[in-house]
Design a protein around this nucleic acid. Structure first.
Lengths: 117, 117
DNA sequence: TTTTAGTACCTTGCATTGCAAAGTATTTTG
DNA sequence: CAAAATACTTTGCAATGCAAGGTACTAAAA
């Protein structure tokens, strides 16, 4: 039996996205009050797929960690929504995360540069 | 009992790194024949921490998937080493991965730009 | 009024995967 | 020969994304 398990490229993309999920979610919320569907829509528009079963637990965790606040807002058609905003701690943490991201992408850029030459 | 589970910033860094592990490992191997310790050393020099228990399984998997070849090479001091190189498929896949990475970092850059203004 | 459809939030269970720690094997050094 | 050093491998645990199923509320259709 040949043992060359095909390599899954799509999975690589998923992996990379996962690593930045919290970061990108906080970035979106930093732009203004949003609720879950808004976030999913905006992520999708940037090719950053995220689904409910992933998003809700993350939002809850970020809230428990003191990075997010939310307030219930009545909808004109449908059940009420949780609109999220960053807390001061959230803003601060997002700043740190941005630095972490800059560091990582810098390292990788360096590797890619070697690779291309 | 207050329920504000402190948020772990170091974990965010770890998360981001994890997402790019296979990618960065392949990038390093693309630069020339290396064995595990070389990879760990080079990653560390770029602030990309990776440890044995993580690296070996990944190398095995990439080999099983046909992206890597290895050859045993005697060491002057110690047991023999597995020196890895990219297969043609590996090179091709690395090219695809680079595109995936470019896409992701572009999306995130766009988000950060909004955030900063 | 009951039913159906739509929207929104939450939870459960599984699969993947990084990693600490322990294990095997080989070579060198005291 | 014992001990240390090096290199590769494996095991078990914890974290986490996600598919799938669940609850609840609103509005429109039957």
């Amino acid at each position: 039996m040949s043992k060359t398990n095909k390599f899954d490229l799509e999975n690589v993309e998923a992996q990379m996205r996962k690593g930045t999920l919290e970061f990108t979610i906080l970035l979106i919320i930093s732009q203004g009050e949003v609720y879950a569907s808004d976030i999913i829509k905006e992520m999708k528009s940037l090719d950053l797929i995220v689904v409910e079963g992933t998003l809700y637990p993350i939002l809850s965790r970020l809230n428990r960690s003191g990075l997010l606040n939310y307030s219930w807002v009545e909808s004109e058609s449908g059940p009420p929504r949780k609109y999220y905003t960053l807390t001061p701690t959230g803003k601060e943490t997002l700043g740190h995360m941005t630095k972490v991201w800059d560091g990582l992408s810098k390292s990788i850029r360096r590797l890619i540069k070697n690779y291309k030459t």
